[in-house]
């Protein structure tokens, strides 16, 4: 068991045990899948699998769902990202529908994000009016409005 992952898991477990839902916790997970088997996601109530419209990304999303279920996190949703057109949208929707991964939202491809990244700036400050930040704003509204999501 990797102790760095175990420490994060331990901290989250204690926070949840003591403060319950008093604060929102957003965990930026390690790329890939290995961390899931280490249980870093054990104390979250939902896993959002970010998927892009190409097979290996979608396949990773499917595996995230499988592993999360083994971990006991049943609430796994997909989030389409970098969607450029109707073909992209359809590819993601079809794959996710076929594998029982409901989509919680869609973020369009936004070239200004690459610029923000190059400049080392947070997108919310550098391109607040861009379509990607707008979509994440909508996602925040969706999540806040959802009942029963702790």
């Amino acid at each position: 068991m990797c102790s760095a992952h175990a420490t994060v898991r331990g901290l989250l477990g204690e926070i949840v045990a003591r403060t319950g839902n008093g604060r929102d916790i957003i965990v930026d997970m390690e790329a890939g899948l290995e961390h899931l088997s280490r249980g870093t996601g054990k104390h979250v109530s939902r896993i959002i699998a970010v998927v892009e419209p190409y097979f290996r990304s979608l396949e990773t999303g499917r595996r995230v769902k499988e592993l999360a279920q083994e971990l006991g996190v049943g609430n796994v949703v997909g989030l389409a990202n970098k969607v450029r057109d109707e073909d992209d949208r359809r590819a993601i929707q079809q794959f996710c529908a076929a594998h029982g991964l409901p989509l919680v939202g869609e973020i369009p491809y936004d070239s200004t994000l690459a610029e923000a990244e190059r400049a080392g700036l947070p997108p919310i400050d550098s391109s607040p009016a861009g379509p990607a930040v707008a979509a994440i704003r909508d996602l925040a509204d969706t999540l806040v409005a959802e009942k029963g999501l702790h």
Partner: peptide
């Protein structure tokens, strides 16, 4: 809410996690 953002490398996890955190705050 307690949410983990997962996925393949380069899919935009960190951008989404950071921006979503700011929006919720």
């Amino acid at each position: 809410m307690r949410i983990a953002i997962a996925g393949k490398g380069g899919t935009g996890k960190t951008t989404i996690a950071g921006t979503l955190s700011r929006e919720l705050a």
